[in-house]
Amino acid sequence: MGKPNDLVQGTLDLLILKTLRPEAMHGWAIAKRIQQISGEVLQVQQGSLYPALHRLEQQGWIRGKWQESETGRQAKFYALTAAGRKQLEAETANWNRLSAAINLIVSEA
């Protein structure tokens, strides 16, 4: 099972940005979504998630807004900004290049 520590630095950023692409959501939902989509392989720990969210917010790639959650309680919803969308494209392209390269080496043997 992948631990957050095993995530390549920067990969978490990519996962968060990708997860937020369709809609704004709060931290808990982001963690859950990553877990679900990865088929329970990737579990994002709070200890990494919230510093990452705040860092991305500082960078201006996502923007947090307090809204009423599905349970009626106030929660901080993060949405992708225009800059974040650009960053997502760049990081996706980067990731594709990197993973393709790694694949080439791994499948060689």
Partner: peptide, 16 residues
């Protein structure tokens, strides 16, 4: 304080 709220929300979700 807002950060505490945010983390508290997460904790409550986990408990739920």
């Amino acid at each position: 304080a807002r950060l505490d709220d945010e983390l508290g929300f997460h904790l409550d979700k986990q408990i739920a």
